[in-house]
Design a protein around this nucleic acid. Structure first.
Lengths: 155, 155
DNA sequence: AAAGATTGAATACTCAATCTTA
DNA sequence: TAAGATTGAGTATTCAATCTTT
């Protein structure tokens, strides 16, 4: 096949389509996150990481999750999550509770203020996604993109 | 439909395909960058940001670029690039030169050590991309992904 | 020993202010 | 005034070490 002659697979080469997909993946993610977070900041909302925590908690029974579960949901390092939860707790959006079943663990529980913030934040967030993603892809293209990214994620 | 109850279409809602594409874009980018950077770190290589700078310089005549040009190429904030270049300069990989044409500007020039590092780093980087991206998508899928991401980037 | 979580110290990033030259 | 770049101070992230419980 033609491209394989120009860029044979081997020790140190890479098909250009992979390289381009890789560089664009990084640029698209960073550019869009920056643009969307700037819009949220302009609306006096906290960073997306705060939303992510509140969303995970909101989805669960009793709006609570063990830190270790939050950690694996959000793909965060343990020490990173520990300090993120510190900040949310300091802002009164979550509280920590000790865990009967396993005293090593701690629950992270959304407070009413945390749930209210997530609810207020969602329309602004959705509008920003609509503006930056929805305006550039059709629904079919978005579905195709989600499918390809799913493969990268092993789904 | 269930999701429409949670996220009805309207002023502040979003087609689920956009939401899924968005969340997967973030997860795929972060997971892959983390995995690939971990491999490079294990091979005693510096962060990808260093590679990005050295690559841009390598591509240019005389292996040099104004800081402001590097900044727009790499989509970095000015203060961020300033300190990234400080670190590369401290490691002897680039040097700064004053600019005759516009004394406000400074050139960033790759040193022989910087060019050599980029060259040594590429096979390891390419192998990591191959392992984490090439193994999960066909070349056709990678090209389709690059095309969709290009739309998101306005290309 | 391993899992869950936290912390001190070092590094990196961000915001706003600053400096120089165009 | 604006462009290019840098810097001090504050915030966030990272690494390694630590603590408690399983």
């Amino acid at each position: 096949m033609h491209l394989q002659v120009l860029y044979p697979f081997g020790m140190s080469s890479l098909h250009p389509a992979f390289e381009q997909a890789w560089t664009r993946l990084i640029r698209a993610e960073r550019g869009l996150v920056e643009a969307i977070e700037a819009e949220l900041r302009a609306g006096d909302f906290p960073p997306l990481a705060w939303y992510d925590v509140l969303l995970e908690l909101w989805r669960r029974p009793n709006h609570r999750l063990r830190q270790s579960e939050l950690q694996s949901e959000l793909l965060l390092a343990q020490y990173n999550l520990s300090r993120l939860v510190d900040r949310l707790e300091g802002a009164g959006l979550v509280r920590r509770e000790s865990c009967r079943q396993d005293a090593r663990s701690r629950w992270v529980v959304a407070t009413p203020a945390g749930l209210a913030l997530r609810e207020t934040m969602w329309p602004a967030y959705a509008a920003a996604i609509e503006r930056h993603v929805g305006s550039k892809l059709s629904a079919e293209e978005a579905a195709a993109l989600a499918g390809l990214l799913g493969k990268l994620l092993g789904r």
